[in-house]
Each structure stands twice: as C-alpha cells, then as structure tokens.
C-alpha cells in the first residue's frame, strides 16, 4: 500500500473529478497508473430473438486505486451488465475498458480468464461456494487456476481465512457455516490472489440486517486498508457505506457523486432508481 492511500480515498476521488473526463475522453491511450478502471463509451447490445436490447449505451467511468465505489440502479438500468464488463466476464460491443493498465475490451476468452484470476475478486449475492469443498479448498481455488504450488496455496488460503476471522473453521463445508461465515469465506476467496479490485454483487442480498452490517464492516475495513472495492447494489443503505455512488439509468450514468452528496440527496427525497 502506497503513501497515497493514507488520505481518505473519497477525497482523492473528488479531487480527481476534473481529471475524470480527460481520462475517459482520450480513446486508445493507456490511462496513467493511478486509474485502476477506465471505461470509455462502453456499450453492450444483446440480440434477444431478433430484437436488439441496448443494455449499456456508452458508459464513462474512471475509478482510482483505493476507491470504494457503489454502483446503483433499478433493474434494467444495466448495472448487472456493467458489473459483468468490469468483472471481465463479458466484453463490450463498443468502447474501451482499461483495467489496471490493460485493455480488456479486446481480449480473448483465455486472456479474460487470466485477468479474472489475477485482477478481480468476486463476491456474489449467493456466495457461490462449491458445496462439496471445505472452506479452505474453496479459498484455494483461484490459486489452483493461478498455478500456485499446493503448499503455498494452503498457506495463503489459511492466511486469507484468518484475515476474515475464520481461521478456526477452515475444514468446515459451506453447509456447516452460517450465512455471514459463508460470505466471509467468499471474501477470503476473492482476496486470496491479491486482486486489483474486489467486485461485490449484492453482497448482503441473502443476509439478515445484523449479518449485513457485519459484512459491510469487513468491506469498510478492506477499503480503509487500501483495497479498491466496487459494489453493485440496489439498496441505498448499503450503497451509502461506499465513499462514492454511481447511479445508472437506462444504460447510462445518471449521477456520479460523493457519498455525502448522495446521502443528502436521498434525505431530500431524491430518486435513486
């Protein structure tokens, strides 16, 4: 973690707002290294039986290293599609996506798989742990595909599980763990390969409110330690944990503001959806 991370990430993001446009505008050039995510006019169309659905219609987003960003939007706003793009599970029809200095939008499937493995840590709403594998084996999985030798895999997985306070339950299977514990295993799995971004899709969607708060505290802590976090959610409460909130509507960015601005707007009855 560099010295830049000592300043609150939200401040950096806001101070850089002027720069954002420039970063997103100059097509074809690699953004400077403090920008972890830069999208330039990315669009994604789906052919639904002859009818073209335009899920994203030109999204410009720039995220600096160490930011904690929530992406919001009603269903059909394109937030899932955007998450798939950012997570390198899909590539845009138009526009550019730069992740950690690499142009992802033109990559082959195998290159995307490698980027997902090295750069992205996924946390899903439904945890998506392999049911027959122990917590330890689940956390080891990204390292298996990274080609890490077994002994080192085990050591790093143990370390990641200890970081989420699950060092005692490494040999439990998912069905022997509570919802909150499962999600913490998933977070350990997401972090084990030291990814550039932690990408969470409705991470509290299947959890009760107490457990949700517990998980959000884990994210908060990670963000404070300098982990870049992107969280997709439709709940303003959850979104307000982030330091920056991007709202999508009809496939474009409708607002991109500091958490304080967002919270103030919500308090005045402003629409998030």
């Amino acid at each position: 973690m560099s010295a830049a991370t000592d300043a609150p990430a939200g401040e950096i993001a806001i101070s850089a707002t002027g720069e954002r446009k420039a970063v997103t505008a100059s097509a074809g050039t690699s953004p400077s290294s403090e920008w972890i995510i830069v999208t330039r006019g990315i669009a994604r169309n789906y052919d639904m039986g002859g009818e073209i659905v335009r899920a994203l219609r030109g999204v410009d987003i720039a995220v600096m290293r160490n930011e904690y960003v929530a992406i919001m939007g009603p269903s059909g706003s394109g937030k899932s599609t955007l998450m798939n793009m950012i997570g390198c599970l899909d590539t845009p029809n138009e526009g550019e996506y730069w992740l950690n200095g690499q142009l992802v939008s033109t990559m082959t499937d195998d290159e995307l798989a490698r980027v997902r493995n090295k750069e992205i840590g996924f946390v899903f709403q439904t945890f998506n742990l392999l049911p027959r594998a122990t917590a330890l084996a689940n956390v080891e999985l990204p390292l298996v595909y990274a080609g890490v030798p077994a002994a080192e895999r085990r050591e790093r997985a143990m370390e990641a599980l200890t970081r989420v306070q699950l060092g005692e339950r490494v040999h439990h299977k998912p069905n022997e763990l509570s919802g909150g514990q499962r999600q913490r295993v998933a977070i350990a799995r997401a972090l084990v390969n030291r990814p550039s971004i932690l990408l969470a899709d409705e991470p509290t969607g299947n959890l009760d409110s107490t457990t949700s708060e517990e998980i959000m505290r884990v994210f908060e802590e990670l963000a404070q330690r300098g982990q870049t976090v992107i969280m997709v959610t439709h709940e303003p409460d959850i979104a307000s944990h982030a330091r920056r909130v991007v709202v999508l509507r009809d496939g474009v960015v409708s607002s991109d503001e500091r958490k304080e601005q967002f919270v103030a707007r919500i308090a005045q009855g402003g629409k998030t959806h």
Binding site: R114, R116, N128, P142, Y145
Partner: peptide, 16 residues
Amino acid sequence: TREIGVRKALGARARD
C-alpha cells in the same frame, strides 16, 4: 453448471 460458472469467474480457462 453453476460450479462451472464459479470456476470460470475465478479464472478457469475453457481448457481447464
């Protein structure tokens, strides 16, 4: 299918 999706999300290539 879901397991395959998870593995792919975590970095498994088609050949894996």
